[in-house]
Nucleic acid binder design. Structure first.
Lengths: 135, 135
DNA sequence: CTATTTGCAAACCCTTTGCAAAAAT
DNA sequence: ATTTTTGCAAAGGGTTTGCAAATAG
């Protein structure tokens, strides 16, 4: 199981709660804390919201989970199994993962060269007014 | 005064409090709500924090002010007088405005073409571990 | 004059914390 | 056996709300 490796590499214990959080985050549904809580509760009825928070924050510190600040102010979370960016719909909140492309790499390189820095992370959120999933 | 025009165009009343908020946001210091509050308070001692919130949120809805979700979880705000992106330092929190470049435009265009969407907004935050302003 | 905005204080989340019990390695 | 993690309930803190008074146009 990939998640167990990811956790072991970082010296984190593989509790059922923690693995469940990673699984939820890996579904590409970009859930909120509450959504993870209610989904995980189905199989793990005793889990608490505080445990979701603690684990998500821990994984965020490890850089493998990121926070997406939605236009409506709500936070959503995503497992960053590989670098990607987000296309979000402002009307319905749908989020799609998009791969980096050549132009984005060039953009990053040109900032690094002109500013003399190494970019550690590039968060990109492209917003559209409405999408094919809007009613 | 540019701000008065910006407000009039949107049918918003130009109260001294609102103009002061715009001025703070235009200083390129990317202040927090509290920072705006204490700065504005110096010249306008009766202003309330709630008024800062109400005005910033209003300007956000108008799309002329954006929220920057800092790595530490704190929110900072910026007047989007022209489209630009942010280079943020994870250690000291310094934020620098950077212009769009050719590559970023190409990137945007390629998503629009491949996905058949019009990107309404492109939020980019490039993070570095430390910068020249870190002690 | 009318509609909007302000300022205050209270209410409202969402998120974090402390701690004893439980679980992982 | 040791260290980490969980779950609970309470505390915390940033943000919003309701409303009467003040202000802008």
């Amino acid at each position: 199981m990939e998640f167990l490796t990811v956790l072991k590499e970082r010296g984190l214990k593989a509790t059922p709660q923690r693995v469940a959080v990673l699984k939820e985050l890996d579904k590409k549904t970009h859930p909120t804390m509450e959504e993870m809580y209610s989904n995980i509760k189905e199989d793990n009825p005793t889990i608490s919201l505080a445990t979701i928070y603690k684990n998500v924050n821990l994984l965020k510190e490890q850089g493998i989970v990121i926070e997406i600040n939605m236009p409506n102010g709500k936070m959503r979370y995503d497992y960053l199994s590989y670098p990607h960016i987000h296309l979000v719909c402002k009307s319905c909140g749908y989020i799609e993962d998009l791969d980096y492309d050549e132009n984005l790499f060039k953009f990053q390189k040109s900032i690094e060269d002109s500013k003399g820095v190494i970019i550690d992370r590039l968060d990109v959120v492209a917003s559209v007014e409405s999408c094919k999933f809007c009613k």
